[in-house]
Design a protein around this nucleic acid. Structure first.
Lengths: 216, 216
DNA sequence: GTCTATAGGATGATAGAC
DNA sequence: GTCTATCATCCTATAGAC
């Protein structure tokens, strides 16, 4: 268990506040993923969190504030998955690891993926802070890793930027479109095995498509 | 110009009704794509359509009715793009054509793609009619085309079902996540050229990844 | 810190004149 | 078929007692 050490001058975060905020954010995540920002009411979140509605406003002032808190939470998770690749890595191994990590994310955090997707689809106004200069630089850095591999003759000269979109689109699809996938394949939900099969398939096609030998 | 020939006993569809319904659906599409179902108000749609709010209710009774009408419209477009592949086709040519068609759809009908995506992400309750037995059979048929190619030794033994999800996910990403793509690449919008480059890249990687020689 | 009661605003829907 | 005026509902947010 870790203690919150408040910065000098900042208010200490009480144990009870931390716990309640977590409960509320969790409940909010489920609702926002299912019904979008507007489609979610503070009332429903309060019920799912087992707290009176006024408490949500006590902790988060606004509905928008709560939503942004949920989004920030998601983005922390997002970033943590994103920095596994370096130019020194073996391309096959690194790409395999990355695809597995993204599929694992789609499996374990589908709501997070969906909230992020809905936010981006509807213009992503709450993500302007996130989609800033740093983000663009970070993205160029990621693309640079692929470019380094290409320049070293380790993989085909594909467009690194579009390769990243291919990786994102194909892996996130399993979280965001799970409903459609289940309907079409006659499943009620996607099992761990389903997701691993999907990941293996992506790894096989994308690696070969980039002129890489499978690392497995 | 085609005339609407009403079925026996059905009400004739007046010229003015047809025109107004089109105007309303178009305005509704823009709003639903941008703000989702709940986030869209009949008031705003009416303003964008240049009609008084009460007219919307005259033509569509419900907000839900209007939304379903918009969705149906989208699904017609959807289906028309989906039946280009047959087992007799050359796999490389057919896949190339299919990816191009999907990218063209993402370019020309991004709102349609986004509305469909948001509906699926949030559970797709309005699509239960669409996601029916026929849909599943149709999907199996599509997968069967790939399986036939595999059985004939024309391509690698990839999982046909997951290949379809790869095609869908990677192409739709360019419509649904256009905001993120623009932010990250420093564009204000995706041009026709951007989309063609993206399509070419997908074609190169996916065809090679399935053991197919490029058809171009 | 917690919770009830309620203000204040927006929205879907309809009645009814034209 | 068109449009104004209005109702009823729901939701965010806050005041104020405990």
């Amino acid at each position: 268990m870790t203690f919150e050490v408040p910065a000098h001058g900042a208010k200490p975060v009480s144990r009870i506040r931390q716990k309640n905020e977590e409960t509320i954010i969790k409940a909010a995540e489920d609702e926002f993923a299912r019904h979008g920002y507007k489609g979610t009411s503070m009332n429903t979140i309060a019920q799912n969190a087992g707290l009176p509605k006024a408490n949500l406003h006590y902790y988060f002032t606004n509905k928008l504030g709560l939503y942004v808190a949920v989004l920030s939470n998601i983005i922390e998770l997002w970033d943590s998955t994103f920095n596994t690749l370096t130019a020194e890595d073996d391309p096959s191994e690194a790409l395999t690891r990355y695809i597995r990590a993204k599929m694992e994310f789609s499996r374990r955090q589908p709501q997070a993926s969906r909230i992020f997707a809905m936010e981006v689809i509807s213009g992503g106004e709450c993500l302007t802070e996130y989609f800033n200069q740093d983000y663009r630089a970070w993205f160029q850095g990621r693309a640079g890793v692929f470019q380094a591999w290409i320049d070293a003759g380790k993989m085909d000269p594909v467009d690194p930027v579009h390769l990243i979109f291919l990786l994102w689109g194909s892996t996130q699809h399993y979280a965001d479109f799970a409903t459609q996938i289940c309907r079409v394949t006659g499943r009620t939900r996607l099992t761990k095995q389903d997701m691993e099969d999907a990941g293996d398939n992506l790894i096989r096609i994308i690696l070969k498509g980039c002129g890489l030998k499978p690392a497995i």
